[in-house]
Design a binder for these strands. Structure first.
Lengths: 201, 201
DNA sequence: ACCTGAACACCGTTCAAGT
DNA sequence: ACCTGAACACCGTTCAAGT
């Protein structure tokens, strides 16, 4: 007897899932729709992914790698402030190009299916490196979190249609990034000149 | 013949839904579980809500009203910077107390079922008023968006377990809020003294 | 006027049976 | 070794029939 040959691959399945995700949101990524798209029946997917959650996690991980690739190399600059602004804009650009995928990237997954820490690390290194260049090692993490939180929060609200009071949304993002980076630079400057930490408490 | 008397109310249904949401996440809010909790069968819910999406929207709206009530009155202060910091912390406190509900509040709903604009307005007015006191009417909206984006982004990443690099997360939030409010105040100050807008572009 | 059981289409998942 | 149809439990939703 000749054992059945594989008719698809994990990579193909993830690709099909990502296309369905971007086209119709997470609810369109059903085991049946993904299977049909790769020319197989739903039960066959369980040969490669334990369940739907594992497939979604793989899709999320692949998307994170893409975002990481988009940001790669941005820390190689001699103007960290400019670099940070560029990272923020690249971040927003990715979200606008792949809104549903971006949404998934920051949605709650069961702990067992979260993206491994090292893949996460790669995507966040440019930002962290630039932050360290701007404010020094001690406050790099806080600064990176400040920027990430702002960028993610802004983009997330933008995608959810939360900015309905009018105004220029592009300008608001520029304004926010600018104020933030400048504030971080000033904060570091003050410390350099031994004036102690700004008292904002 | 005696027509059947109502055995539940829309308010009861929403309450039951909110409890199920906080206990087990959105996926635990099924028409059957909600119906059983109010002592009725699933089909009866359709007398009061067009479908599950409408029920979820009602739950989301009720939660927004609660958050609005939490923030109400915070704009009545003579220290807008302090008021803004207080709003940011109240925001984070709400999210930590009701994580799943908070998550729903900022998740993507189909446009037809979004919270009406006026209910949204009530929850965002304190922040907007304080921002206007700090930076003036022209930049109030940008400033409010900067703060909201940071607070939402930070809290959202916190709830999703995105802060895995260690460090003091409470301190990072304080740091971010402090830097932001200070930067906004400085920015406004500069304009007041007719030195033109800070050139951060 | 509201409630219900029964039915339908759909989903995730399992598994014995095929090659 | 992988694929499949059939089956199961569950879900949202509709609707005729009850009171």
């Amino acid at each position: 007897v000749s054992p059945a040959r594989a008719r698809t691959t994990s990579a193909d399945i993830v690709t099909a899932g990502r296309e369905l995700l971007e086209a119709g949101g997470l609810e369109a990524v059903t085991m049946q729709s993904v299977a049909l798209k790769v020319g197989v029946r739903a039960p066959s997917l369980y040969k490669r992914f334990a369940d739907r959650a594992a497939l979604i996690a793989a899709i999320s991980g692949a998307a994170l790698d893409d975002l990481g690739a988009e940001l790669a190399g941005m820390e190689e600059t001699d103007d960290p402030a400019e670099g940070l602004r560029a990272v923020a804009h690249a971040y927003r650009t990715y979200a606008q190009a792949h809104p549903r995928t971006y949404e998934l990237l920051f949605s709650n997954l069961p702990p067992a299916f979260r993206t491994p820490a090292d893949r996460n690390e790669r995507a966040s290194r440019p930002l962290l490196t630039l932050a360290q260049q701007l404010v020094g090692p001690e406050r790099a993490l806080d600064a990176a979190r400040l920027l990430t939180a702002f960028a993610h929060g802004f983009v997330s609200m933008e995608l959810n249609g939360a900015f309905r009071l009018g105004g220029d949304v592009d300008r608001a993002f520029d304004y926010g990034v600018g104020v933030l980076v400048q504030a971080l630079a000033d904060d570091a400057q003050e410390d350099d000149s031994a004036m102690g930490r700004r008292s904002w408490r």
